[in-house]
Every structure is written in structure tokens, then in C-alpha cells.
């Protein structure tokens, strides 16, 4: 009762990275609260789930095996969570801010009348005093996320409703194995007690998945461009630099919205979170939503013609100048001095 729950996203028997990251975060929260960490696995081919999940510190896995639960569709997964939560009364439920999590989370929160905060960048436990009612709430989940066009961060709480639900993007939390030999309990549930035949009215006619070509998340060096790059053609400069450095190209949302770069390259709160060894920000002003996705880079270089660009405050090196001038020089001197 009143434990921390993580919904596991599973594709073809493999638990998604984001779910493992959330288990790690969930473990920390459960330790702070002195409660258990529980995971929910619904789908088919779940034979290796325990092996995948227990090392991250899950105390209980709720397993729902049924071919009809995979691939994911909204209604049956909603019914499983809603009915399980009515019994288990979790205090916290975490999901990935993925297409699945953002389809399922709001539906479940609506059915339970509990609040949900999307795209959190940080989760903490703390107290809250409701001055007017003279009430103090202990051990609430602070759901922290940037809000409204930058510059502000909102701390959201759900004082009275349970579970406190939050979604988090992949890469925002760090995954870490608690103990490779950790063993929890497996609870297998009878699917028909949770799901009704009417939940299967939506059918998947066709499904094509392709592996993404871009892998910025794991690239040690990222050359990232913003609106200041000016055009899709100018982005070629960034590809040239990335090529010689063996780097990937990232982008700000303004650059993506302007069509300079593909959406998969977006870095930030609503894109990918990255922690490379070197991040070169070219023509990026550095709004909070962007910084949220790259501030943990080991070394940051900012190239910007505005010496007062906000990103400069978190940069290790600030190059004040036009990217059209600076980048070709960086390429030239790299070629000259390497090897």
C-alpha cells in the first residue's frame, strides 16, 4: 500500500530505457519515503522482465500477460492501471513522457481524478504548508518543470489526490543498477479481472517501426545549432564541423521549428536530454527549456554574436562572433593541429 509505482514500457519483450531510468529515480524516492518500489509490466513475451527490472531495485513486479496487450493500445492498459491502483493505492506513479506515457498518463489520471504533471525535469520529496487551511502536508512529490516560454521553473504538487503522477522524458533521469542480484517479488495477475472485452475496440491495422538514424543521446561530442544559424544551408557548417570532430549535430527547438534541422535532433525539455563530453552551442540563446536538456555536459562552448546571450553564463568558453566566421576557422585549425 502507498508505494511508488513505475509503469514499464515494453517493446518486443525489452523494457525501455526511460522506464529503467524511472526505476532508478523511483528507488531513491521510495528510500526517502520508506516504502516499496513496484513496477507494472503488461504485454506479451515477458519472460525476461524480472532479470531486466530487479537489478534496478524493484521490490514487486505486477505482471499482466496477454497477447492482446502488445503492442500497446490505450484502453486495456488504462483499465489495468486504474483497477490496480484502486486496490494498491500508490502514492506516486511515474511514466515515461513518451508517446505511450503521454497517451496513457492523462487517461489514467482522469479516471482516478488525480493530478498529472508532464515532462518533469526533477522530482523531489518535500513538505508543503497550506497557510489558509492551516494544514501541513509532509512527504509530497515536488514535480519540477520549466514553464511558460522560459525563465521560470514551476514546482507542482498534488496535496490531496493520489497517486501523484508525473511523466519524465528519456535521458532526464540517470539509470543506475542498485544491485545486480536484487530479487523482488513477482505478482502475476489474471488479466480478465482487470480488462473488459470492450477495451479492445481499437485495433492496430498496420505498424512500421524503424530505428532512428540519429543517435545524439550517446554521442560524446555534440555540435548544436539554434535559430541564429540562420538557414538550413548554414546548418551545413555544423555538419562539417561535426564531421571532422566525429560528433553528432543537435538543434534547438527554434531551429527545428524553422525547418533547419529534423525533429529527432531537438535537444531540451521537449527533445532529448544529453550529457556529452563536449557541447558546442552555435547561435543558441539558451532558454531554460534548451538548457534543461544539456546543462550537464562536461564542457560547453558557446558561439554567439551576442556577448550577453544567456547560454554564455553556463559556458566554459564563450566565443563572441558570427558562426559563419568562427566555424570554418575551428575546422581549419582542427585539421592543422590534430594527429
Amino acid at each position: 500500500m502507498n508505494n511508488v509505482f513505475v509503469y514499464l514500457e515494453i517493446e518486443d519483450g525489452t523494457v525501455a530505457e526511460v522506464s529503467l531510468e524511472l526505476l532508478t529515480k523511483g528507488r531513491t524516492l521510495a528510500n526517502q519515503l520508506g516504502c516499496k518500489l513496484e513496477a507494472i509490466a503488461a504485454g506479451a513475451k515477458l519472460d525476461t522482465i524480472e532479470k531486466q527490472v530487479f537489478p534496478y531495485g524493484a521490490d514487486v513486479i505486477h505482471v499482466f500477460k496477454d497477447k492482446r496487450l502488445s503492442p500497446y493500445t490505450t484502453l486495456p492498459h488504462t483499465s489495468i492501471l486504474v483497477n490496480l491502483f484502486k486496490k494498491e493505492k500508490p502514492q506516486i506513479c511515474l511514466m515515461g513522457a513518451t508517446i505511450i506515457g503521454r497517451d496513457l498518463g492523462p487517461r489514467v489520471s482522469s479516471a482516478l481524478g488525480s493530478g498529472l504533471t508532464a515532462d518533469c525535469t526533477s522530482l523531489e520529496i518535500g513538505s508543503h504548508e497550506e497557510k489558509k487551511a492551516g494544514k501541513v502536508y509532509e512527504n509530497l512529490l515536488y514535480q519540477i518543470r520549466p514553464a511558460f516560454g522560459g525563465n521560470i521553473v514551476a514546482w507542482i504538487i498534488n496535496p490531496d489526490c493520489r497517486p501523484q503522477m508525473a511523466t519524465v522524458r528519456e535521458g532526464v533521469m540517470k539509470k543506475e543498477i542498485t544491485d545486480p542480484n536484487y530479487k523482488g517479488e513477482v505478482v502475476e495477475h489474471e488479466v480478465k479481472n482487470y480488462v473488459s472485452p470492450g477495451d479492445f475496440v481499437v485495433s492496430i491495422i498496420d505498424r512500421h517501426l524503424e530505428k532512428s538514424k540519429v543517435n545524439i543521446k550517446n554521442s560524446p561530442i555534440i555540435v548544436s545549432g539554434g535559430y541564429g544559424v540562420g538557414s538550413k544551408e548554414n546548418f551545413q557548417l555544423l555538419y562539417d564541423l561535426a564531421n571532422v570532430l566525429g560528433a553528432e549535430v543537435g538543434a534547438s527547438r527554434a531551429a527545428v521549428d524553422a525547418g533547419f534541422a529534423e525533429h529527432e535532433r531537438q535537444i531540451g525539455q521537449t527533445g532529448v536530454t544529453v550529457r556529452p563530453k563536449l557541447y558546442i552551442a552555435c547561435g543558441i540563446s539558451g532558454q531554460i527549456q534548451h538548457i534543461a536538456g544539456m546543462q550537464e555536459s562536461s564542457l560547453i562552448i558557446s558561439i554567439n554574436n551576442d556577448p550577453g546571450a544567456p547560454i554564455n553564463t553556463i559556458a566554459d568558453y564563450v566565443i563572441t562572433g558570427d558562426i559563419e566566421k568562427v566555424i570554418p576557422k575551428l575546422i581549419k585549425y582542427y585539421k592543422k593541429n590534430s594527429k
Partner: peptide, 11 residues
């Protein structure tokens, strides 16, 4: 609204 804004911080 079950969610409340506890505080807003400047970054």
C-alpha cells in the same frame, strides 16, 4: 484542479 503550483522560481 488537483495540481497546484507550489512556487515559481526564476531560473
Amino acid at each position: 484542479s488537483p495540481t497546484k503550483v507550489k512556487k515559481i522560481e526564476n531560473v
